[in-house]
């Protein structure tokens, strides 16, 4: 299967097989009008199978937030057909409106307009807690 290479944009590589749609939804890629390719179950020497997303546009989003979903993901920034940067996303210090607090006693359970903000409380355990009620985030 051949997918055209991109000139200016982003290639998100080493996505766990089956997780591409989660990232697609998280980055709201369905709203873009540029070409977006989702490659599922590609053969990988390192992972066996992996997913890849290619976006033929420069997105103005904090890709480090992907670190919450999977810090092993590789992000490649492409400019004029060349890869100019390759990195793993870091765990973000806070994540907003990516996950929702499930504690029925949390203020977010009755105030629908409040952003659901989680803070990184333990980097080694990849642990986030609600800014308001301190409940642990469930992935």
């Amino acid at each position: 299967m051949n997918i055209d290479s991109i000139n200016n944009g982003i290639v998100i590589d080493h996505i766990k097989a089956g997780q591409a749609m989660q990232i697609y939804d998280f980055l709201n890629l369905g709203a873009l009008d540029c070409p977006v390719a989702i490659i599922k179950n590609a053969v990988s020497n390192k992972m066996g199978r992996k997913d890849i997303i290619k976006i033929d546009s420069v997105l103005d989003v904090d890709l480090n937030a992907l670190g919450y979903i999977d810090p092993a993901i590789t992000i490649n920034l492409i400019k004029d057909g060349e890869r100019v940067r390759k990195y793993h996303p870091e765990l973000p210090a806070t994540i907003t409106n990516i996950i929702r607090c499930r504690n029925p006693r949390c203020i977010t359970s009755i105030e629908q307009e409040l952003p659901h903000v989680f803070k990184l409380t333990d980097r080694e355990k990849d642990e986030y807690r609600c800014l308001y009620c301190e409940s642990k985030a469930g992935k």
Partner: peptide, 10 residues
């Protein structure tokens, strides 16, 4: 004082 957790943070 509020019955919901985190209300004072808001």
């Amino acid at each position: 004082r509020h019955h919901k957790e985190g209300a004072p943070t808001v």
